[in-house]
Write a protein that binds this DNA or RNA. Sequence first.
DNA 1: ATAATGCGTAACTGTACGGTTACGCGAATC
DNA 2: GATTCGCGTAACCGTACAGTTACGCATTAT
Lengths: 126, 126
Amino acid sequence: MRHRSVTYSPARHNEATFQALADPTRRAVLDLLRRGAQPAGQIASAFPVSRPAISKHLRLLRRAHLVREHREGRHRVYQLNPEPLRAVDSWIEQYRQFWTASLNNLKSFVESEYARELEVDSRKPK
Amino acid sequence: MRHRSVTYSPARHNEATFQALADPTRRAVLDLLRRGAQPAGQIASAFPVSRPAISKHLRLLRRAHLVREHREGRHRVYQLNPEPLRAVDSWIEQYRQFWTASLNNLKSFVESEYARELEVDSRKPK
DNA sequence: ATAATGCGTAACTGTACGGTTACGCGAATC
DNA sequence: GATTCGCGTAACCGTACAGTTACGCATTAT
């Protein structure tokens, strides 16, 4: 029941990645790991949920290959692996033209370079 | 290593968006709508699942503001609204520097500008 | 050897999907 | 007015989390 026919190109590849990103805690873990690799316990201490909960999140992130784990003594160090995010990025890429076009009631027909400058500047603080 | 006060900012804003993108069928619906607005029935006919199933997917997409609905007689026409994807894009943006620069596994603490320069040069295949 | 750490896993609960069939309601057609 | 069409919703089932507490197994410290 869990498998559908692949008639509409569901991009099975990204499946685990998109699924892993669906949870805000997991995204926050990734954000945390951008600052550097950390052992599981330290990651858990940054969140208001229990350590086993984080352990399970890490399992899903592992399954999606978004993190790598290696042992150091009795520590399990987790490291960010942003590679799978490229697939997400290229999926989003197909929509980028839409929101720049629709946003452009201003006369400025922004070229991709110029647009990038803009959105870096107008980063919302919240 | 310290920084225990990570504040756990889960970006509640994107919450519904990421969640909506987690399902491959919903992503395929969005992909379909890129070609133009369509009534619900026509969308459903493009998928191997039942019409009510698609109806529920559309509800989630509506909740995430990824589609707009308006009535035309007895049809309910759905239209793509890519705006929320910008938030996803800017989240991913923060990782863009990583996935090319960090192939060498140096936990590059590089400045964003510098990283971008580097990644053009250091093309390690593995 | 014994105790304390670090962390995954098992077991259990509640909730949100993802899918289905049955149904209902407004719009269009006859 | 009766019927058909288009589509959302209700009711129901199975599964996958998200969280918890209890436990077990290495590794390190005493």
